[in-house]
Design a protein around this nucleic acid. Structure first.
Lengths: 151, 151
DNA sequence: CACTTATAGTTGTAATTGCAACCATTTATC
DNA sequence: GATAAATGGTTGCAATTACAACTATAAGTG
């Protein structure tokens, strides 16, 4: 049945997250921190709220993770001149060096995950997962705002 | 590039997990507990170790989750007559009733996630994700055992 | 303009999560 | 069959995770 799809998505995600957390202990990153460094590096000046929505993580979780990364001098926080409510985030020089490793690991995991799939399948997969992401993130935003789904 | 694939897998998984955790607070389930109830229901007599491998979760996490579910009388633990090391798990009657709700929610989320995909795409997706799962879980087992991946 | 509502960020608290280190069995090896 | 290695399960810790409840700023509305 179709429910296999979401089950496997969950399993793949947990497995990869677990692998990343274990591997990045070598570079003194704690659970989950790699996610934030990657996204901030690729979206310089992003806010905590935007990060939370990008990752589908609670904003308080993002806040704590960022605080820790600032302590560790891997991320820098600056005030937004145009909007005092916002604090913009950048990766430090040290953080940038880590990004290189994160990127390489991600590439490797992608290679492993896609082993045995041909180019056409990969392209289709990319397109379909993007569509699914949009569908699911939409529901996530609603539910986070308090909307009750009926089923 | 291909790295979009794993990013989206992670995002979908986090979003759905977050939704489930929020929705299942109505039935007094705490973070993550729904996973174990579902899998034990579908695999009666499963052990903690098998559960951990099925979900790609650390065995100590499984242990704590199960202890809590036993306290809540949603899961039952029995000794394996043939092997005193193993403790076999079953869902209680109360737990079975919850399973019904979990199943309905999962169906609904699947429907939402797959909106806009046709039957052929869904079938392909199912097959490809199963293959990816196998690839990734294999690496996860190795890394958990201490194997260092080179990249 | 007043003032209400919404938004971004932050802390209090309580729970899960997972590595390390351990016990109890079982399995492998001599 | 004795002893070593492996396996399944369990606790001590230390950290993330996230809901509530809050502050401060910005945006919407009469």
């Amino acid at each position: 049945m179709d429910y296999e799809i979401l089950r496997n998505v969950g399993t793949i995600a947990r497995a990869l997250d677990s692998i990343s957390n274990i591997e990045f202990k070598d570079i003194a990153l704690e659970k989950g921190q790699y996610l934030y460094i990657s996204r901030i590096f690729e979206n310089p000046g992003i806010t905590q709220k935007q990060l939370s929505n990008l990752l589908c993580v609670d904003k308080t979780t993002t806040n704590r993770a960022i605080s820790r990364l600032i302590e560790k001098k891997l991320v820098i926080k600056r005030d937004d001149e145009n909007n005092k409510k916002n604090k913009l985030l950048w990766v430090s020089e040290e953080g940038s060096r880590l990004y290189d490793i994160l990127h390489r690991e991600s590439d490797y995991s992608t290679q492993v995950a896609l082993e045995g799939l041909n180019q056409d399948e990969i392209i289709k997969m990319t397109r379909l997962l993007a569509k699914m992401t949009k569908n699911v993130v939409n529901d996530w935003s609603e539910v986070k705002k308090g909307h009750k789904r009926i089923y």
